[in-house]
Write a protein that binds this DNA or RNA. Structure first.
Lengths: 347, 347
DNA sequence: TTGTATGCGTTATCAA
DNA sequence: TTGATAACGCATACAA
């Protein structure tokens, strides 16, 4: 009945290699780690051969114990199903893998209790560094990691002072969006965005307000909702029900924008004809909605490599690095289709 | 300039706890692990106190080394950005976390080279079990894990014989979709799906063909493409360009379906009026397309808990478990809107 | 250039 | 019920 093949044998150890090569374990270690002592070419050859024939692989638990480092990076985030976070995780994973680190996920689902326990779990696992990709809801979370592990927070919105920080320039991104809509001649521009925990500032909103203000427009058409498609749907409906509905909507995230579009479709409103939409994030999903969404894209890769590098260097005593976002013009804003608005994708 | 707070101190060890409690390390270990020896209530109390005051947490590298188990589960998958995989990872992570396991991701991007090296990396990390959530492209991958670690493959399509297997009943799911479309009176039903590596069988196609055949219809309107939105877009265009275009399309995945919808919109075709669509997967994205997609949903949670349990039990010498899929009716199939077709979401 | 020997923090055996 | 102690596999200080 056994479908699973042979018996599991004990994997070979340094000892085994040393024995076969006729050297001490120290020498094998020197060969594997290129130091800290040199090895005669001939011996090195023998050791390499032994490693090869035995199929030796270093035991990473033993290494971690001895070196006091796991080469594991913890990532604290709300929810991997959210494409925005998924995109970040992918980029972070790439950046980490390129440096021989692996990533350990901890999802909070915006639940303070879970946030704290998942963080504790990460710490218990002996992560070498922590990447925070969420607003923190539990005060204890701020201090829990503090003295244990270097950490980097990817976001400029919340209490950035507490952590070294690498992140998108949300304000500049929002300004890009608002300016573009104004360039299309809109004067009643709505904003549908998600709620933030108390005390946090949404720089998207600040950017949007400042541009509108700069053009003598009042920034009153705001709906705060969930950070989800359903939230966007609801927020848009409320906006459309106002006495002075907007002619353009700036959505705080791609997910929200998708919900906004559904609300428009449902009311038989044409986008961008009746109402223009600009989105925020730049996930692939925004490209395949109907119409394809004009959006402001996070510099996922740049942020991720910067964050991982900061973490690995261990030198988190560093100036905040806020990286610029980029406007991606597609069709929901009212720009003429350029012919390549669709049918391209990452993979 | 120091933003990072105090100095990092050496975390307390078993020794420290033992010293403070005035017992041996063995006793502390007995307390922590509830065995294998008993401890007098009074002593246990003292130990617990010491643990509390020192804030002691077991070092997991040392544990892993000593116990020969990491409580880590490796997941091999193509790409976390794909919402289908993201949904699975979320469910797997939940199932694992509930059992005190963590998940280590390894993304292959469908690249055989990367597939093999990521798998090796997982194995090097000492994972206790392997979950395979992809078609394997590198023959070595099949054997690499074989004798090292229990593994479970989540898919019934490929060489299931090589691994214990837990997965969705793709064939039954496809039959659900095809039957439903036929129920709407369609006779020219197209199928847009992704390509599989050589030797693999797509049970979706088998299900679709069998239902069509059972109704005396020929199953010739097939387009094989990429497993992506862009692929769906292309596949649909090719299908529409045929001499006998379909009046209904069955999409092999939600991503493909979204691309199909975009192709329809672009040609000014109404869905479901001109062409009905049924999708496959049941990710949240399918709910917020326009129109909301009727889709066949994977039993993500059931599969995930079954897979994780099988892995942890270590008894992978078990019959394949194929779990049924479920039809979720929304609007793209031509069914009348039921009023709740939109505006609901997981989170 | 190589070998010996110690300790990283746990667990669990064996003796007391 | 408790304590001493020997591994687990590796990295390195120190000696040769």
């Amino acid at each position: 009945m056994s479908r699973q093949g042979r018996v599991r044998r004990r994997p070979p150890t340094l000892q085994d290699v040393a024995r076969l090569a006729g050297v001490s374990t120290a020498v094998v270690s020197y060969v594997i780690n290129d130091g800290p002592r040199g090895v005669a070419p001939a011996t090195r050859e023998r050791v390499l051969d032994a490693i090869e024939t035995l199929g030796y692989r270093p035991n990473s638990s033993a290494r971690a114990l001895r070196r006091g480092a796991t080469h594991l990076i913890g990532v604290l985030l709300p929810d991997i199903v959210n494409p925005f976070h998924a995109e970040f995780v992918a980029a972070l994973d790439n950046a980490a893998a390129a440096r021989q680190y692996s990533i350990l996920l901890a999802t909070t689902h915006h639940d303070p209790e879970r946030e704290y326990s998942m963080l504790a779990n990460l710490l218990d696992r002996g992560i070498d560094g922590l990447l925070i990709l969420t607003y923190l809801y539990d005060r204890r979370s701020y201090t829990a990691a503090a003295d244990r592990v270097p950490r980097v927070m990817i976001d400029e919105s919340s209490m950035g002072r507490l952590s070294p920080l690498v992140g998108p320039d949300l304000r500049q991104g929002a300004e890009l969006a608002a300016s573009h809509l104004i360039g299309h001649g809109h004067t009643r521009i709505g904003f549908v965005t998600g709620a933030l925990p108390g005390g946090s500032v949404d720089f998207r909103r600040i950017g949007w307000e400042s541009v509108l203000g700069g053009h003598g427009l009042t920034a009153s058409l705001v709906e705060t909702t969930e950070w989800s498609r359903a939230g966007g749907y609801e927020g848009a409906r409320r906006l459309l029900d106002r006495a002075d509905p907007p002619t353009a909507i700036f959505a705080g995230s791609d997910l929200i924008a998708v919900g906004v579009l559904q609300a428009l479709h449902e009311r038989g409103l044409d986008c961008p004809g009746d109402i223009a939409v600009i989105s925020f994030d730049g996930t692939t999903e925004s490209q395949f909605s109907w119409p394809p969404l004009t959006t402001v894209r996070h510099p996922f890769e740049a942020i991720s490599t910067a964050a991982v590098d900061t973490l690995i260097s261990g030198d988190t005593d560093v100036e905040p690095r806020i990286l610029p976002m980029e406007l991606i013009v597609r069709q929901s804003c009212g720009c003429p289709p350029s012919g390549d608005g669709s049918a391209r994708e990452g993979t």
